[in-house]
């Protein structure tokens, strides 16, 4: 193999790698998503049991009781860059959550649970992939608060604004320690 041939081979290889990167570069640049993620049909939480299987919520509206269906509350869903904290008091005397900004408080084993955020969540879009910083999302139920946030991932269709987000978080402490909350939110995103 001659030296000029080697040089040409290297040049072609570098060009082959660089051209697609340059071409797709602008499209992959992440952009902030600002607005409201409305929580629509098909959104749910499942509670994975520490020893396997899923918790059956008899009060779930789904035929499969391991899925507890959730939908937007009066606040419209998850608002980016906004804290949606619990009202005061956070619970009724029976332990039902009064937090209805993100989801409509939903029956879990006879007591309503709600969802709050204590730090403004942020979301970015890269291509059709959403990455969300939703680490400070909490579920409130029976006068107790459970950290359920995480870094979340999903997809977004900019043509119809349909999105899907999913994540899971292991409960730390409390009566459900070791349970894993599997969340899936889907619906439409309203840019602000």
């Amino acid at each position: 193999m001659t030296n000029p041939f080697k040089l040409r081979l290297i040049a072609v290889t570098v060009a082959a790698m660089a051209i697609p990167m340059v071409a797709t570069g602008p499209a992959l640049a992440a952009q902030q998503l600002n607005g409201i993620f409305h929580i629509g049909a098909g959104s749910y939480i499942r509670m994975g049991l520490p020893n396997g299987g899923f918790f059956k919520n008899p009060y779930s509206k789904d035929a499969n009781k391991t899925y507890t269906l959730i939908a937007s509350g009066p606040g419209g869903g998850i608002r980016t860059n906004v804290v949606q904290n619990a009202p005061s008091p956070a619970f009724t005397a029976h332990g039902n959550s009064r937090a209805n900004s993100i989801i409509t408080p939903t029956n879990f084993t006879g007591i309503l649970f709600g969802v709050i955020t204590t730090v403004p969540p942020t979301f970015s879009l890269s291509g059709d992939t959403i990455t969300g910083h939703l680490r400070h999302l909490y579920a409130q139920w029976n006068k107790q608060t459970f950290l359920q946030g995480n870094t979340v991932y999903g997809t977004y269709d900019s043509r119809n604004h349909h999105y899907v987000l999913s994540w899971h978080t292991t409960v730390q402490g409390g009566p459900f320690v070791g349970y894993i909350g599997y969340w899936r939110l889907q619906g439409t995103f309203s840019p602000s």
Partner: peptide
């Protein structure tokens, strides 16, 4: 105990 809680919740629902 956690599994008992789950059993009882399902039973109450029944």
């Amino acid at each position: 105990i956690q599994s008992y809680f789950s059993d009882m919740a399902v039973g109450q629902g029944l």
